[in-house]
Design a protein around this nucleic acid. Sequence first.
DNA 1: ATCCTCCAGGAAAACGCTTTCCTCTGGTGA
DNA 2: TCACCAGAGGAAAGCGTTTTCCTGGAGGAT
Lengths: 338, 338
Amino acid sequence: MATLADVARRAGVSPATASRIISGSTKLVTDELRERVLRAVDELQYVPNAHAQFLARAQRTAVGVIVHDVSDPYFAEITRGLQQVATANGRLVIICNSYRDPSRELEYVELLRAQQVAAIILAGSGYHDPAFTKALTGKLGAYTRTGGRVSVIGRHELPGDAVMPANADGGHLAGVEVFGGGHRKVGVIAGPKVLTTTTDRLAGLRRAAKQYGRTLPPRRIVFADFDRDSGAAATRQLLDDSPDLTAIVALNDSMAVGTLSVLRERGIAVPSQMSVVGFDDMPIARDVTPSLTTVRLPLTEMGARAMTLALEDRARTPRVEPAAATLVHRESSAPLAT
Amino acid sequence: MATLADVARRAGVSPATASRIISGSTKLVTDELRERVLRAVDELQYVPNAHAQFLARAQRTAVGVIVHDVSDPYFAEITRGLQQVATANGRLVIICNSYRDPSRELEYVELLRAQQVAAIILAGSGYHDPAFTKALTGKLGAYTRTGGRVSVIGRHELPGDAVMPANADGGHLAGVEVFGGGHRKVGVIAGPKVLTTTTDRLAGLRRAAKQYGRTLPPRRIVFADFDRDSGAAATRQLLDDSPDLTAIVALNDSMAVGTLSVLRERGIAVPSQMSVVGFDDMPIARDVTPSLTTVRLPLTEMGARAMTLALEDRARTPRVEPAAATLVHRESSAPLAT
DNA sequence: ATCCTCCAGGAAAACGCTTTCCTCTGGTGA
DNA sequence: TCACCAGAGGAAAGCGTTTTCCTGGAGGAT
């Protein structure tokens, strides 16, 4: 690998001059030397060593992002928003997949800190796990104390700026859609119990139930893993346990898609025999048949805003930006036929 | 930010000793000092500066990946495979989205080279653009000459190891499905003209047509952008121009989904009035209605193999690993009703 | 008691760059 | 002609690690 010294030698100048020409310092250099250096760069196919540059400049430019899994559409959309803003600001983004493993999440914070990133963005649900939350808070605290910026999407208990999706409101909207439509026996396919996202959405759903004088008995709630296949499995269990359901709310769209496939497989008509409501409004939602009624979150925008917060000047006090949920009514849900 | 020197000072040892303890050198150190150093690390929340470590060790550990767009399911699947193998080998992966912009692709190669990555993996189609291909070959050549590894997924003209999806064979399979089913008027929704993937798939399709004594007249081929909405637009154009079509082949699943939505919107029954065949077998394919007949590529496996090639010892001669295409027959296609 | 060996720990160089500070040249004004 | 100044270019000091090489002291053998 050619180094700056090689370039300087070949051009017959000092490393200092070569550096100034290559990385565009303000210092004046004669055209002749500039010419010679650039020719040497070209001939040697020289690329400056980013690590050495970093060390010499002590200027943080990269940004770290920790998500559960980029290939999950939910996070893919968020990441798209993050990337947009980051590249618009000339920042390199390092993406880390935690696969919902708290310990891996801690490791990645460490790794990003080692990489000296200017900001760390955590996207995705929080965990109901005080020990972990404390450990994470500690690590992030150490990071912010040394000038690092932290911004989170959707977890309340962490320091730093936050973009908060209205999970509870969204759950409420889903609840209004079914209970308000007259449904009484409503099944719920929830996400992992340990995630705050699950709890919040469920809480909103409960509020709606209460509002309409209904309840959500535990046997009509099945916890799954926020992915299609576990959603399908949960649907089978729900149908077997409570054959009299007339509506199912899945707490994300992936699982709702699984639900639809099981209903099709069992010949249960949607929405005439069973209403289905999802959550997130992922791109697939409009392409399944029947198209999915769902609660929409502005995922891309949430990503963009989280990155903006992270790159802006630090505020005196942590900022919390809400992201509103809205109901997108499509074909998979209808009022209870009387 | 605490440095190694801070830790050493606090523990009352030399930086050398502290370094040995922290990064686990083979050199022996007494338990007492080890104890003191580790305590200091803990108190100062010290994390080694990865850039400085890199510089001192001159050991490349990260791997760079350039894809068109991670949030596109096609690349999401590939990336999943890449990540699996990378993390299994303790490698950090840097993901770059080129958004199908050749110049951005060149920039990213430069950036990854600057980051001193151990390998660069290019996933995605090649371009019919000799100037660009030459520039890219030049940059990659310079990189490999200095010990870097390159592995590509699906582009033939570049140096380095390659995983080659059987795009032409896949096109042929799609062709056999429709022409073999007796269809004569077949519309094609192709990807961007400049991509080799498009050309290859189209070539396979043509071969099948010829084999069954049919042709693929230009007016029945519309070029779109490999995404859902442009696929939908292309479908409308196709239907307007050639109302007598009985089958449509879309060269990827995203566009096929767009096709299905337009057919639904126009009340054209699938497959009784129109057969639809996609390409890639993305997860959505089985969840749309009717479920999509498509050509399957082992995307995750392709990613895993590309990463494996990149991390293995360099072979004397570039290796090319084929990835076979298979037809997945579902509900969206049927022989022509006579 | 003397010499040697062995080993824990430290000094210092190296990694590749940036940047401050200094030197030297040539030009200007008196 | 001399002093001075401006400006171009270079020397060298970092940046935070790792690692080689060296030092000094303890222990063992003679």
